[in-house]
Design a protein around this nucleic acid. Structure first.
Lengths: 228, 228
DNA sequence: GGGCATCACATCGTATACAATCTATACGCT
DNA sequence: AGCGTATAGATTGTATACGATGTGATGCCC
């Protein structure tokens, strides 16, 4: 969610947001074609605006644009997948630590609300939404840490993680997350920076180890795309 | 330098690159207006393409786009400036360490070549180019570390650092850089990861402390912009 | 003379039109 | 039949046109 202006979100931003959410919630999978005319018709705008939105998503690495061929939902290679989690393991323990050191009571409330919504989504069987909220938790943590720039990086990495999970997730257990996030909140609420960092690190390692990074388990939409 | 395709760089990419270099080399200062028509005339393309280029730069945070007002070279606030160097201090020691652990002889040669070119630029009094090369040094180090994603972040941060330096640089001494980069190469060449990380950290702290982050020392190009 | 409304101009935002490129089907050849 | 080529359709890349929104100046009123 790249929020450039606070009020009146540009139409291009709205479209980018819509597509972004669809990708996050796995309604659009890696490799899906994003035709300009098609999207334009759906949102009732011209291709000009759609192109701007697709370019935005392309810069966030959520979408791959291939010259004269169009835009597709990105499908990260195993290598990219590994790097995404390496980068997160580098950044997020620090944001968790800073968050623990600076968190105000209202921040804690916000985080707890997040977790509750996440649990609700899981109960309701809405896995897409649960995943989305789970990501937001990490982003909000970075925001609380009061490090805008790093928070931006984390946001991008979380988005890409969603694609990685869509491609390489091994088991369906989102349960481990519950405990991890809960323990994190406790540490943050208690102002235990070092512990928060440690918990975040092991949480990310857990996530990483739940991936099966052997060759594409699910080959992208069309076989042709791989060979092209 | 966002190199999406290896051959045939898109016209939009060429324009973005051109503007990017101009900004890096301080030929375009923070606050400078980037009119679409003006740029389009210069490069001989329509506004459509220019807009795509400006959007790219905007996503890299090198340019700020204000709705219905146009694009301007970004002028980072003191807070942003601080965060840029904080983020670098978080990322780059690690890339330096990895680089030291993985560097091949050819990588060392490349780094040395960079330094020599940098010195040459300084001797020639071409400060803009020297600054640009100095930035490339950090980016190449991240590349050698074989961490594409983190390297991308570093690239963005280096670019933004260039703006920060344009706004907040206190003394004109680029001499300290010489020693710092030289020492870094030695550590990398010797495979001393821990030492490389340490050197990188203190190098960045040095850079940061050479800034004067009290209010905008140099008000942006047009006075009105501040008041708006 | 200072402040405010109004108007002309410049610039941006979006839609549309045309050209370039790619995809896919159909045809002819070996 | 298999394979390569040609042609038609679809999709993207770029340019142009028009409407919307700011910018700056002029002129009026106080």
């Amino acid at each position: 969610m790249t929020r450039t202006s606070r009020i009146e979100p540009t139409s291009a931003e709205m479209i980018a947001d819509g597509l972004s959410r669809a990708i996050h919630e796995h309604r659009l999978g890696p490799g899906a074609k994003l035709g300009e005319d098609e999207i334009g018709t759906i949102y009732g705008v011209s291709r000009t605006v759609v192109r701007a939105a697709l370019q935005t998503l392309s810069h966030q690495r959520l979408v791959t644009i291939r010259r004269n061929r169009g835009a597709f939902v990105a499908s990260p290679s195993p290598r990219e997948a590994r790097e995404v989690f390496e980068a997160r393991a580098l950044l997020e323990p620090r944001t968790a630590q800073s968050a623990a050191e600076r968190a105000e009571p209202q921040d804690i409330d916000q985080l707890r609300a997040h977790i509750m919504a996440e649990h609700a989504a899981i109960e309701a069987g809405d896995n897409g939404r649960a995943l989305h909220l789970s990501g937001r938790f990490h982003i909000d943590l970075a925001r609380i840490a009061d490090q805008t720039i790093v928070a931006g990086f984390v946001e991008e990495l979380v988005a890409r993680s969603s694609l990685v999970i869509a491609l390489y997730w091994r088991r369906q257990s989102a349960l481990c997350e519950r405990h991890a996030h809960h323990a994190l909140i406790e540490a943050v609420a208690a102002g235990q920076g070092a512990r928060a960092a440690e918990l975040m690190h092991s949480h990310l390692v857990d996530l990483h180890s739940a991936l099966d990074l052997r060759e594409h388990s699910v080959p992208p939409a069309t076989l042709r795309d791989i060979l092209t």
